[in-house]
Design a binder for these strands. Structure first.
Lengths: 257, 257
DNA sequence: CAGACTCTCATTGCATGCAATTTCGAAATG
DNA sequence: CATTTCGAAATTGCATGCAATGAGAGTCTG
């Protein structure tokens, strides 16, 4: 996460990081209008850098500018989240395809291969512990990062960073949620099989197949989302869960601004 | 263009608009480090709103933050532009697919149909004038906007806006460039055929076909790019041409940050 | 003569004060 | 009783002043 280019330890960065925490944890609720002065006091920064931070988070999509000035915390309905995941799938599919099309030396696949290897233990363990899951998450994120590297496209990298600014669109947002799920092992086996298949497709320079696989891989997250939406306890483990609009008509698809 | 949410006529908006002009016109050249104080004087705004504007344009991708502070004008090599167009194709493909999958009442296609109809005259005219081209460009942009509407996905809309912040990734960046080209008519006929086909595919709810068509449609722009890169006079008519790095190894593909 | 150190200047980043706009509340009128 | 209009307070947006960090040039030493 934190797609910010450079992390200089200024007041502005401090404000961005701290405010993002507040938003994701729900301490500043969705739909709520954020007031600058109390927030500045709360974050321990002045209004000037806070304002920059607000602008940044608005560009990331967590805040929304009001026409009259000021910002509100954006909220997301299930359809938004599903679309965000779908979008990530599309972008990762493109990354996989480009990786396949542009692969030079097959040795360049080593980092990807290493990430896949690092995830094997969890899948092969009969009764994985929480530590196993966390190691899996790390390796999973490395896998996705290396895949993006292989695509070798700054433009795609930008788009991806933008899409993953929404926390629940991140590759492993729902991995920890499924830790408690009975069908967890099945899902992980499936996911890992897809990891291997993507790697294989890239190595064989099968761009279309790699793309389709990466998309399907993201659909797994969408499936987990559906499961989590039914169980409040499960949903609470998802990173940005506080931003999800609750108790709303789930089928509502008419918010297109 | 100008994907900014609300256009309040403040100093900040003024700075963004004016500075964007300066960047696209090349009056502030690529690679150049922008100094706040003289720029503020030049734009007629204070440093505070200018700073917000700089942040905005950095998020749009036209500027780049330096680790030591400050900003430089970003430049784009041919590979970057090609990737930007490819990316737009991917996103528009997704829009077309979602439009097909989510289409409710076929009557919702009326706006899209109207845009296609508005483009017909130019294609059917044997010797189109500049005015014809401009009307085509308008209708073309309406077509792409309506397509995005049909996808009915705020997330996709965001991603699209981000991708099209780069001026040469816009749907009709290269249309005016090809006005002088001899093969112009051929290309337009092809493009219009694709418009019709996309519409047809959506109506028939053929999502995959709609996606493939939209991607191929974007590839037309990529082809025009290649043509324009050879001819300096042609390139000069492209919107953000000042940002393109010239006299560089065109095959260089190793700038992945 | 080359390299490194220091001093100085410019530029960015931050804080505070002020003005303008908006919003909320209350009162008055239809 | 609802609605509209006017007013006051709060909040955003903007400008300026100051401090801190980084760059560059000049000089001194090895």
């Amino acid at each position: 996460m934190s797609g910010d280019a450079s992390a200089r330890p200024g007041q502005q960065m401090k404000a961005v990081l701290r405010l993002r925490e507040l938003l994701l944890s729900g301490e500043v609720g969705p739909g709520e209008r954020v007031a600058e002065i109390p927030l500045a006091a709360r974050l321990g920064v002045s209004r000037t850098p806070l304002r920059l931070a607000l602008s940044t988070l608005a560009h990331e999509g967590l805040l929304e500018m009001l026409p009259g000035g000021g910002f509100v915390v954006r909220d997301f309905d299930p359809a938004d989240i599903a679309d965000a995941i779908e979008l990530r799938g599309v972008l990762e599919g493109t990354a996989a395809r480009l990786a396949a099309e542009r692969l030079g030396d097959p040795a360049d696949l080593a980092p990807l291969r290493a990430a896949v290897a690092a995830m094997e233990p969890l899948v092969r363990t009969a009764t994985p512990g929480l530590a196993d899951f966390e190691r899996y998450v790390v390796a999973n994120e490395i896998f996705h990062a290396r895949l993006l590297d292989l695509a070798d496209s700054p433009m795609l990298r930008r788009a991806m960073a933008q899409a993953m600014a929404l926390p629940f669109a991140s590759p492993s947002s729902f991995v920890l949620a499924q830790a408690d799920l009975p069908e967890s092992r099945e899902i992980l086996v499936l996911a890992q099989a897809q990891h291997r298949a993507i790697l294989e497709a890239i190595e064989a320079r099968e761009g279309t197949r790699a793309e389709a696989l990466a998309r399907e891989h993201a659909r797994l997250a969408k499936q987990n989302l559906k499961l989590a939406l039914g169980d409040a306890a499960l949903l609470a483990t998802v990173p940005g869960n506080a931003l999800i609009r609750r108790g709303q008509s789930q089928g509502a698809r008419k918010i297109a601004s």
